[in-house]
Nucleic acid binder design. Structure first.
Lengths: 337, 337
DNA sequence: AGACAAAATTAAAGCGCTTAAATTATGGAG
DNA sequence: CTCCATAATTTAAGCGCTTTAATTTTGTCT
């Protein structure tokens, strides 16, 4: 029932090689033969079998993306842009969720490359364990880290400058007139967390503001963590004039706590988040934030990975993108008294 | 460099068939031979090539999911549950975005099955054009429709009872004391839109409330559409006592408009949405909604599709799941005067 | 110890394509 | 009209595995 390349060859009266050449539009096919093959293909409604092509060619035209979750808008945006970039190249995306190394190792994520199901992989999940890198490198398997880089290991990556983002975010709060500025940082498994924190600290230092450890608190990228920490600061009477939140979710929680305790935003509390969540601009007040170039992140990741796969690029390459500060109502000049 | 099944066979001192048998744990391998093979596999760090297996077996162990977007939490949840279900089966997910038929046809989504890259596909994107069904059916290619069914065409599907959801949502507004109840429905390309509308109408009729066409307005599942329509109703002085919104995004817009015009929710305007968006419970007031069994939808879809692939199920099968009403603050008894 | 059925193993073929090497066709120069 | 270089085509091999059919081994029974 399923028609293969031999059926086409027979119908066209040529060899399968000629059919294959037409399929891969090789120039060395005479016009009349090409036409005969094309006609036969159309008549038989033939479609080459990608699995057989993959085996013969040694590449599948598929790329794996490993990400921790898709509920986070940042992740979703990167996923969408990766898919779009691959689609433009005629390639396919195999999506695999792995929150951490353990899952990554155990799960079938690792099978993606061990079994040669994909030509390369993009890793958006945070990996603290080197084992996987080492295996990937040992097998010389093309991969690109997204939104993370590991200085102690040679690996190609596309990242967004989190230090810069943290610095600028903090800076915007200083510009708004705040002196006491708190930071609720995110989960420690992400590299971005420490980098944003460093940016925050440097911005303070550059403006002769001492870093106050009491105004540093660990969140986990959830609304609840932002709410809880802000509430605690309020109750303990140490609420700063402004808060730089690890991400917009955290910032939403901060805003919620402020509302609950009737603290005016931004007059009494300026807030800036991170990621430009779709809802950030819809809040009252609209949330200032740091927008990450997610589309660019995905596209560049795919571009870099394909270069690695095709061998156009041999050595590890690092691309660093810049985030963009988006100032809205929550960081308008604060009432500094 | 890459080690194949022949290397293992040679090292173990057996034929490749025996190695293959061990790989697929066939019982007809003597214990000592199995052990020799296992040792060789471990020594050589051998991993079977999935592409070659796919070609020989005629199946890839991959499934395609076609969805319109991943920014909608409903879509994201289904995507995640599909991936989880496939992972549990040791299968892989190829994700392909296609907002509509046109994209579906043009894009590489269609290549997924035309080129035999996957064993079956799950379709979450709305398809109004029959051409694709017909092609899938003609090729006898396994597929399952998610969240849609096409009565005029024989196709297996897993859906959520939208009529029921619309009915119950409306009912909850009636129970809250509303007589004049508006409905902002969603995009017409989704079957769910008409079904929810029918449920809405029937609920009204069952309570002797006439359907008022002026209180029916077309939205598009966005916050803005909910905002705009509500605002218009307010300005025209025909704001109903309650609104059943096509989805939670629309409902968010309704709430926003009510806030802007200082209309108390739920005292003067009761609201219910659809989908149980992660933010629904975090709003002030918390949004009542209709929760769809997304996890179940994805799991059952995968289950049904695998049965179709394996041939365990031959004829088209339809599974209908029930949504669940989640009552929160936005539908508390309204002040009916 | 020999015969025989059952179980295990292997040889051979095939999955559908690509690619290198060998062969044949083409057309311009002499 | 023949020869030869070049382009086009085909033959053959191979990608790494599974599966059917043929062969060998095993162990039981007489």
């Amino acid at each position: 029932m399923p028609v293969n390349i031999y059926d086409v060859a027979k119908k066209a009266g040529v060899s399968v090689v000629t059919v294959s050449r037409v399929l891969n539009n090789s120039p060395k096919v005479r016009a009349n033969n090409r036409q005969k093959v094309l006609t036969a293909i159309a008549d038989l409604d033939y479609q080459p079998n990608a699995v057989a092509q993959s085996l013969a060619r040694g590449s599948t035209g598929m790329v794996g993306l490993i990400l921790p979750t898709v509920f986070d808008p940042f992740m979703a945006q990167v996923l969408a842009s990766v898919e779009g970039a691959l689609r433009d190249k005629g390639m396919f995306l195999v999506t695999s969720f792995a929150a951490d190394d353990l899952q990554f190792g155990k799960a079938n994520s690792v099978r993606l490359f061990r079994e040669n199901r994909v030509d390369g992989i993009l890793i958006l999940s945070p990996l603290k364990n080197d084992a996987l890198f080492l295996e990937l490198k040992k097998n010389n398997f093309p991969f690109v880290l997204l939104d993370q880089h590991h200085s102690h290991i040679q690996a190609s990556s596309v990242t967004v400058d989190n230090y810069y983002g943290g610095y600028q975010a903090t800076n915007s709060l200083i510009t708004a007139g705040a002196k006491r500025i708190g930071h609720i940082f995110g989960s420690g498994v992400y590299e971005s967390t420490a980098e944003r924190l460093n940016g925050y600290k440097q911005a303070l230092l550059d403006h002769n503001i001492a870093v106050d450890e009491a105004l540093l608190a660990p969140g986990d990228f959830t609304i609840y963590s932002g709410y809880k920490i802000t509430k605690e600061w309020i109750i303990r009477g140490i609420l700063p004039q402004a808060i730089f939140a690890a991400d917009d979710n955290t910032a939403f929680g901060v805003i919620d706590a402020a509302r609950k305790f009737r603290i005016a935003v931004p007059e009494k509390l300026a807030i800036i988040g991170y990621d430009d969540h779709p809802f950030a601009s819809l809040l009252h007040p609209a949330l200032s934030t740091v927008r990450q170039p997610t589309e660019e992140l995905g596209r560049q990741g795919v571009e870099l990975l394909s270069s690695l796969i095709s061998g156009k690029i041999k050595r590890t390459t690092t691309i660093i993108l810049k985030p963009e500060i988006v100032l809205r109502e929550s960081t308008l000049s604060i009432n500094n008294c």
